[in-house]
Design a protein around this nucleic acid. Structure first.
Lengths: 144, 144
DNA sequence: GCTAATGTTTGGTATAGACCTAAATTATGC
DNA sequence: GCATAATTTAGGTCTATACCAAACATTAGC
């Protein structure tokens, strides 16, 4: 995660990656196109891009599998989302609203900002929409 | 400001509007193109758009002047920026970093979220990069 | 009050991202 | 091993942003 600023992927691509990560194993084009309600061909193109950037391994006609890099990045995306949602909930939003609203702008928030927020919240382990892992956080030796 | 969610303008357009608002009177195409380092024709096109949406009054060859609607909206943009910057500074960012980082994602943050943050910070009157006005805040009778 | 310099707009082009349909290709289930 | 289902390819649309060159309008100098 060194040299990562969290803005490498557009919102849409990041959502695809998150979805692929959450599915675990091999994900089929149709799964993604159904989930996001877009045409399969749209998915194929985006997948090719994600593969070109090394976030997934795409074997045509057989689906995609997340790469090591993609896995790390997806974990960061999830950690960012949950930290921002938690922050919003500390600023008066209901858990649901916090989670929903975080989705709208999280894609534009730097890793360094996320790390600051994480520290200011005392490296919390639980957010309003799930646990927060700290293996991609600046405070963890593994990341240094 | 009723019916406004803060996402009406793209980041670029909102920046143009903010600049025009800050300049006060009539602003010339060249001023804007110099400020943002883009070609004058790019500015003209964007200005036409802003005029079409009612944020500015554009009299060709004579510059633009902000409209009533634009003025209100610009005030909201500034209030949003300063509240988010203040929030970031409360989460460990230096004043400079808070202001800079807020710029990168503020464009995607809803008015309702801004209002919540405003309330949670106790409707502050000063941020890290300038005063915060509350005439566009949900807490003010003028807005109801 | 005309001309030259300056400022602005018009029209055309480009890129990136996201999306689509239709046609072609590959895989899979009997 | 063939029909059907899944997937990719080809070719296109649309929006936002940006650029340039050429045409045009305005202003300033004389």
């Amino acid at each position: 995660m060194r040299g990562v600023d969290g803005l490498e992927l557009s919102a849409k691509r990041a959502e695809y990656l998150k979805y692929i990560f959450n599915q675990g194993d091999v994900v089929r084009t149709t799964d993604i196109s159904t989930h996001f309600s877009v045409a399969p061909s749209t998915v194929t193109k985006t997948l090719e891009d994600l593969a070109r950037s090394g976030f997934v391994e795409h074997s045509p006609y057989h689906g995609v599998r997340i790469s090591r890099r993609g896995r790390e990045y997806a974990r960061f995306l999830i950690r960012r989302h949950r930290l921002l949602a938690l922050m919003l909930s500390r600023h008066g939003l209901s858990p649901d609203a916090a989670c929903r609203e975080a989705r709208s702008f999280e894609w534009y928030v730097n890793k360094s900002v996320v790390d600051s927020i994480c520290a200011s919240l005392g490296h919390p382990v639980m957010s309003v929409c799930g646990p927060i892992e700290h293996d991609t956080c600046c405070c963890c030796p593994a990341d240094r």
